[in-house]
Design a binder for these strands. Structure first.
Length: 853
RNA sequence: GCGCGCGUAGCUCAGCUGGUUAGAGCGCACGCUUCACACGCGUGAGGUCGUUGGUUCGAAUCCAUCCGCGCGCACCA
C-alpha cells in the first residue's frame, strides 16, 4: 500500500479491527510450549449495563502488556470473559423486563415479557427468570465486544466465556465437589451476615462500613424483680430493639466496677428475662458504661461472645429484617412476667429493626427503664456493599470454604506472586491477616451456579442435611432443581423417602475465583492447561484484591497446589476532576464509545497508558487530545520518512549514526521498563525521543534527505530514518495500536503487532558505535535551539534564510559540529556558517539586506 | 487504632539508588502558512518541590515530626 496523500486517523478503528479479525492477528496458537506462551486471566466485566471509563482505562493497560509480550515473541493467550451471573444481572433483568422471580411458580414455555416494562412487576418462575437473564446478557455481551474491538484490545475473540456458561458451571461445581472430598468445604447452620432486602447470606469480603447516625440508649437491668429495685445496672446500647434477644451482659474481667456482678444474674427491662453477667476480654471498659448487652445477634462481636461464653440463642430478627413472633413463657423464652413481656413484645413483632427501635424507646420511657434521652452518635455500621439497609445476623444453613486455618499458606502464596506495584501485596496480606471466619459461598438467590447437591428426605419428611447426595463429577454441570440424583426418580422429588435439591447458588466470587482454571480448561483439556497454567498475569483493580484476587489464590492453592498466576498487575481507578472515584451513582460517567469517537482509540489509549500501575488517574480529555496529536504526528512524520523513492545505502553521516545510537539506548530502556510492567514510564521515554526525533533530527537531516548534498548523503539519511521509524513504530505499537498499524501497512505486508520487538543490535549493526557520533545530535539540537532563539529575537521566522550565522560554543561542541556542518547550515538556512570555539555559547545572525523594489 | 499511597508551575504529571541555574505536556502570552504535519512549528512568562527539624560539602530526593488528601484493614456496647 503506497504512502497516502493525506493520512488520517478517522475510520482506522473499524478497518483495522476488521483486518485483525480477518487475518487472525491475535489468534492463539496452542502448539507453542509453556515457555513460549504468555497467558492472561482477564477480568470478566460485569454485564449489568454499560462499560465505563474505568474499564477502558484498566483494560488498555492489560492490552499494552499483551501487545508488548506478543512482539517480544510470546504467544499471547488472551481470552475474554463476561461476568453475567449474580445479583447485578438479576437486578438489571428485573428492571429491564419488569419482572420478579418467584421460585414457587411453574415454568411457562415461550414466555415473552411485555414490550415495555410495566410499573407493577410480573412474577415469573425461576427457569423463566434465568431465560430472561440469558437473553439480556447475550445482547449486552455483543455490545461489550464491539466496544473492546473499537478500543483495540488484542483479545482472541474466538475464546470467550461467560461466568454462567456451561463450562463455568462445570468447573465451579467440579472444584467445589473436590473441596468437599478434601473436607475443605463444609455446610453448617450458624449465625451469618445477612442482607434483609436481598434475603441472602453475604461474605466478609462483601461488607463495607458506612457511617450512620445512631444513638446510645441508657437502659436499666435489675438485680431483683420490680422496676423499683435497688442498684439497677445501667448499660448503653445502640440497639435497644434487641433487648428481647439479650442473653447476657458482659464486662471486662479486670473492670473493678463489675466484679461484684460476675456470676450473678440480672433481669431485662420490659421482658423480665434473667440473664447472666459474664466476663470477657473483648469487652472494652472505655466504651459506653463498660458493660454491654449480648444479643443473638446484634453484631459480629455478639457472635464471638455467644460462641465463646456458650450462651443460648434467643433470635428475634427474621430473614426479612422484621422482628418475628415470640410466645413468652415458652421454652427458651422464660420470663418472670410473661404476660407483661408478651404485651410489650406484641407491639414490636412484625416491625423492622428501625421501627421497632422507635417503638421500644416509647415503651422503655413509659416503664421508666430508659435513663435520660438517647444520645445521638455517628458510628460505622456494616452493610452489604450492594445493599441499602444495615446487615443483620441471622442463623441459617450455609456452605463455607475453609480459609481461617490457612492464612499463613495464603500469605506465602502471595509472596510467590510479583505485584505491580509491589505495595499492593500489603493490601492482600492485610486482608488475609484480618480474616475472621471461613468464606461463606452460598447465596439465597436464583441466577448463578447451583450447588451440585441434593438431600435425602426422611420418611418423616425432614431434610437429612447430614447425608448430602453429591453429584458425580462426570455428570457435571447439573442443576439439582431439574436433575435427579443417581438412584432416584424425578417423581420422588420433595416426597418423604425421596430427595430435595439444594436451593442455593454459589456466590459470584466462588465462581469467578475459578477463572484461571476455567480459561485454561483445567479439567477438559490437560494439554492446553499444561501450556497456560499457572498463568502469567492477573490484571485487576485494587478494590477487588480481597475478593477476586484472594479467592483465586485460595482455589488454586487447594486445587492445584500452586499460585494461579505469577504476576498481578493492579490498576488504579479513574477519578473525576474532583478527585472522587467515578461512578454511576454520581452521574459523572462518560460514555466510552462517544469518547473513543471524539478522541480516537489511540488518543484514549494514550491517556490510559499514562496512568501507571496502581495509580488513580484523573479523567482528562486534554491528555486524550495530546494522544491524538501524537498519533497524527506519527502519520505525518511517517509520510515524510517513507515518501519519495527509497534510497538504500550505508549510514555514513555522523548525525544519522548518532541518532540511531541514541535510539538503541532508548530501546534498552523502554524494554526494561515494559519487562517490569512500567508501561507508563516506557511511554514517557519513547514519546520524548519521538518528539526530539521529529523536531530536531528530522529537521536537521531533512535537506540532506532531499538530495541537497548528493546521493550517498541522502541515502544515509533515508536509510537511518527508515530504520528509526520502523523501530519507533514498533515501540509505540502497544500504545497507538491503530496509527502504528496503519503506517506499518504502507511498507509491510504483515501486522506490526506480530513484528519482532526492536533490539539494540539491529540498530547498532547499522549505525556503528562511535562515540563522537553519539554527541553529534546533542550538539546540533543545542545549536539549532540557540539559532532559532536568535532568529526569534530578531523578529524573523525560523525559515527565513539569513546572510551569515556566527555560532560560538566550547571546543568539544565545535569539533563535533564540524562533522555535521552541512546539516546544521541547511537547517538554519544560511550560506555562511562560522563555527567559533569560545567559553560562552552564543550566536550572531546577520540578516540578508532588504531587496530593493 | 494499624497499614499503604499521594502532596513538585494555573491544570495533569515526570524526576526521588542525594550532585551543575528543578523538567514535560496542556493552558496562557507572543511570533511563524511554499517544499511531512495549522490535528502544525517556534519563543517566552510561570515553581521558596506541603510544614518544621535533622544527616550531609551538597536534599524535591535520605531520616524524623507535623499538616492536608485518598485508600485498605480492624473496631463499631
Amino acid at each position: 500500500m503506497p504512502v497516502p496523500e493525506k493520512p488520517a486517523l478517522e475510520g482506522l478503528e473499524k478497518t483495522l479491527a476488521e483486518r485483525w479479525e480477518r487475518e487472525g492477528t491475535y489468534r492463539f496458537d496452542r502448539t507453542k510450549t509453556r515457555e513460549q506462551i504468555y497467558s492472561i486471566d482477564t477480568p470478566p466485566p460485569t454485564v449489568s449495563g454499560s462499560l465505563h471509563v474505568g474499564h477502558v482505562f484498566s483494560y488498555t493497560h492489560t492490552d499494552i502488556i499483551a501487545r508488548f509480550q506478543r512482539m517480544r515473541g510470546k504467544e499471547v493467550f488472551y481470552p475474554m470473559g463476561w461476568d453475567d451471573n449474580g445479583l447485578p444481572t438479576e437486578r438489571r433483568v428485573q428492571n429491564y423486563f419488569g419482572v420478579r422471580c418467584d421460585p414457587s411458580l411453574p415454568y411457562v414455555p415461550n414466555f415473552t415479557p411485555p414490550e415495555k416494562a410495566e410499573k407493577q412487576p410480573i412474577s415469573v418462575s425461576r427457569p423463566n427468570f434465568i431465560e430472561l437473564c440469558t437473553k439480556l446478557t447475550v445482547e449486552d455481551e455483543k455490545a461489550f465486544e464491539n466496544l473492546w474491538r473499537h478500543l483495540g484490545l488484542s483479545v482472541d475473540w474466538s475464546m470467550t466465556y461467560a461466568t454462567i456458561g456451561a463450562d463455568a458451571q462445570r468447573v465451579s461445581q467440579k472444584m467445589f465437589v473436590r473441596l468437599l472430598a478434601k473436607k475443605l468445604a463444609y455446610q453448617v447452620e450458624a449465625p451469618t451476615l445477612w442482607d434483609v432486602d436481598f434475603k441472602t447470606a453475604v461474605a466478609q469480603a462483601e461488607l463495607e462500613d458506612r457511617e450512620q447516625p445512631g444513638a446510645y440508649h441508657k437502659i436499666h437491668f435489675y438485680r431483683e424483680p420490680g422496676a423499683g429495685s435497688r442498684e439497677p445496672v445501667a448499660i448503653e446500647t445502640t440497639r435497644p430493639e434487641l433487648i428481647a434477644a439479650c442473653v447476657a451482659l458482659v464486662a471486662h474481667p479486670d473492670d473493678a466496677r463489675y466484679q461484684h456482678l460476675f456470676g450473678t444474674e440480672v433481669i431485662t427491662p420490659l421482658f423480665g428475662v434473667k440473664v447472666p453477667v459474664k466476663a470477657h476480654a473483648l469487652a472494652d471498659p472505655e466504651k459506653g458504661s463498660g458493660i454491654a448487652m449480648i444479643c443473638t445477634f446484634g453484631d459480629t462481636t455478639d457472635v464471638t461472645w455467644w460462641r465463646e461464653l456458650k450462651l443460648p440463642v434467643r433470635a428475634i430478627v427474621q430473614a426479612n429484617g422484621t422482628l418475628g413472633p415470640v410466645t413468652w413463657g415458652a421454652p427458651g423464652w422464660e420470663s418472670l412476667d410473661a404476660p407483661r413481656a408478651q404485651s410489650a413484645y406484641d407491639q414490636l413483632a412484625g416491625l423492622s429493626s428501625k421501627k421497632a427501635q422507635a417503638k421500644i424507646v416509647e415503651l422503655l420511657r413509659e416503664s421508666g427503664d430508659l435513663q435520660g434521652d438517647p444520645k445521638p452518635i455517628t458510628h460505622a455500621v456494616k452493610f452489604y456493599e450492594k445493599g441499602d439497609r444495615p446487615l443483620e445476623i441471622v442463623t441459617s444453613r450455609q456452605w463455607f470454604i475453609k480459609t481461617i486455618d490457612f492464612r499463613d499458606e495464603f500469605i506465602k502464596r502471595g509472596q510467590e506472586i510479583s505485584w505491580h506495584p509491589e505495595y499492593m501485596r500489603l493490601r492482600f496480606e492485610n486482608w488475609v491477616n484480618g480474616l475472621n471466619g471461613d468464606w461463606c459461598i452460598s447465596r439465597q438467590r436464583f441466577f448463578g451456579v447451583p450447588f451440585p447437591v441434593w438431600y435425602p428426605l426422611r420418611d418423616n419428611g425432614r431434610v437429612d442435611y447430614d447425608n448430602p447426595l453429591i453429584a458425580e463429577e462426570s455428570r457435571l454441570p447439573i442443576d439439582p432443581s431439574t436433575d435427579v440424583p443417581t438412584g432416584y426418580r424425578e417423581d420422588q422429588r420433595g416426597k418423604p423417602g425421596g430427595f430435595v435439591g439444594d436451593p442455593d447458588i454459589m456466590d459470584t466470587w466462588a465462581t469467578s475465583s475459578v477463572s484461571p482454571q476455567l480459561v485454561t480448561f483445567w479439567d477438559s483439556d490437560p494439554e492446553l492447561f499444561a501450556r497456560t497454567f499457572p498463568m502469567d498475569l492477573r490484571p485487576q483493580a485494587h478494590d477487588i484484591i480481597r475478593t477476586w484476587l484472594f479467592s483465586s489464590v485460595v482455589r488454586a492453592h487447594f486445587e492445584n497446589n500452586s499460585v494461579p498466576w505469577t504476576n498481578a498487575a493492579i490498576s488504579g481507578w479513574v477519578l473525576d476532576p474532583d478527585r472522587k472515584k467515578m461512578s454511576k451513582s454520581k452521574g459523572n460517567v462518560v460514555t466510552p464509545l462517544a469518547m473513543l469517537e471524539d478522541y480516537g482509540s489511540d488518543g484514549v489509549r494514550y491517556w490510559a497508558a499514562r496512568g501507571g500501575p496502581g495509580v488513580d488517574t484523573a479523567f482528562d480529555v486534554g491528555q486524550m487530545k495530546i494522544g491524538r496529536k501524537l498519533a497524527m504526528k506519527v502519520l505525518n512524520v511517517s509520510k515524510f520518512v517513507l515518501g519519495g523513492d527509497p534510497q538504500d545505502g550505508a549510514v555514513t553521516e555522523p548525525l544519522d549514526r548518532g541518532m540511531l545510537q541514541n535510539l538503541a539506548a532508548l530501546v534498552d530502556e523502554a524494554t526494561a521498563e515494559l519487562d517490569n510492567y512500567e508501561y507508563a514510564k516506557a511511554l514517557a521515554k519513547i514519546e520524548s525521543f519521538f518528539w526530539d526525533f521529529c523536531d530536531n533530527y528530522v529537521e536537521a537531516a531533512k535537506s540532506r534527505k532531499y538530495g541537497d548534498f548528493g546521493v550517498e548523503a541522502a541515502a544515509s539519511a533515508s536509510t537511518a530514518m527508515r530504520l528509526a521509524l520502523s523501530v519507533l513504530l514498533r515501540l509505540l505499537a502497544p500504545y497507538l495500536a491503530f496509527a502504528c498499524e496503519e503506517v506499518w501497512s504502507w511498507t509491510n505486508s504483515g501486522s506490526v503487532h506480530r513484528a519482532a520487538w526492536p533490539t539494540r543490535d539491529e540498530i547498532l549493526h547499522v549505525s556503528g558505535t562511535d562515540a563522537t557520533a553519539q554527541q553529534a545530535l546533542l550538539h546540533v539540537t543545542e545549536a539549532l535551539n540557540v539559532i532559532r532563539k536568535g532568529k526569534v529575537d530578531q523578529k524573523v521566522s525560523i525559515g527565513t534564510p539569513v546572510q551569515e550565522i556566527v555560532y560560538q560554543a566550547d571546543d568539544e561542541a565545535i569539533a563535533c559540529l564540524r562533522l555535521v556542518e552541512r546539516d546544521l547550515k541547511a537547517a538554519s538556512r544560511t550560506d555562511s556558517l562560522v563555527l567559533k570555539a569560545g567559553a560562552e555559547t552564543g550566536v550572531q545572525i546577520t540578516l540578508k539586506p532588504p531587496v530593493e523594489a
